[in-house]
């Protein structure tokens, strides 16, 4: 692992020159200083932002017999404004992990950058070892819990899915407090209320979903979400990860049909 991102290396001796940096002979007294935003106090202590700004809505993940599927629409809202309408929120991380992110999109992008760096690290060790979905999920838990403990959380709610080396599928959810769980279906945002019951209803008691069932359920759920959640739109992408392939498909469109609208009365 890379030990040190802050500068290009440790000083040659304490208070000494840092290789690759400029050495100021008179300024030797530098000690570790916390970033100013962490030590600047307001009249009533420090206040941090407590809400997200640009947001992605629900993410839905379903585990099936030989892999996982994660879907999210392509909208990133600015408050109630449908600000960015063609943004992918399901990412391929490596050949066995996909990740769907909801919540503050800047925070998602930020954590995605860190994850991508880890994938490059995997590559340069050149040992055919890659990160597994379970490991990524665990790492996210530690990062997010650490942030919330410092009262500076990342406002995200992510779904991690993939397959491990033995081909066993993994699907889990990590939220902004570092809470995490695994299940055959996980959802964030409104999908927790709207999609989760739909999927659970159709789960055969004695076996996993098949890929076809999962795919059909995803289409159905994205449609319901589009109709019922105002922060959703009709276009969505689906990440599919099995042992044999891992990719983000789409964008697809839900089957819009507004003929029933004429019959709705009383609003």
């Amino acid at each position: 692992m890379l030990n040190n991102y802050q500068s290009s290396g440790y000083p040659l001796w304490s208070n000494g020159p840092t290789p690759g940096g400029f050495y100021n002979f008179t300024g030797g007294q530098q000690t570790h200083k916390l970033p100013s935003e962490l030590v600047t106090e307001g009249p009533y202590g420090t206040k941090r932002n407590t809400s997200s700004i640009t947001t992605g809505s629900s993410v839905l993940g379903i585990r099936f017999d030989e892999g996982v599927m994660i879907a999210a629409d392509t909208l990133v809202s600015y408050g109630s404004l449908a600000r960015y309408q063609d943004i992918h929120r399901v990412f391929k991380i490596n050949n066995n992990i996909i990740l769907g992110g909801s919540g503050d999109f800047a925070d998602i992008q930020s954590i995605k950058r860190n994850i991508d760096q880890k994938m490059i690290e995997d590559q340069y060790y050149d040992d055919q070892i890659t990160m597994k979905p379970k490991e990524l999920s665990s790492w996210l838990t530690r990062v997010l819990y650490g942030r919330r403990s410092r009262m500076n959380p990342l406002y995200i709610d992510v779904v991690v899915g993939g397959v491990d080396k033995q081909g066993v599928p993994f699907l889990g959810n990590v939220d902004l407090r570092g809470r995490a769980y695994e299940d055959y279906v996980v959802a964030t945002g409104f999908a927790r209320h709207l999609a989760l019951p739909l999927v659970r209803e159709r789960k055969p008691a004695d076996r996993d979903f098949t890929a076809q069932e999962a795919s059909d359920l995803i289409r159905k759920c994205m449609e319901v979400l589009y109709y019922r959640d105002t922060r959703n739109m009709s276009k969505y992408t689906v990440g599919v990860c099995t042992t044999s392939n891992c990719l983000v498909e789409g964008p697809y469109n839900v089957n819009e049909n507004w003929t029933f609208a004429a019959n709705i009365k009383g609003y």
């Binding site: 890379l2 991102y5 290009s8 290396g9 690759g20 690290e121």
Partner: peptide, 10 residues
């Protein structure tokens, strides 16, 4: 190699 990787990552 480690130093170069840190530079690249940075």
């Amino acid at each position: 190699a480690d130093i170069a990787r840190q530079e690249a990552a940075n």
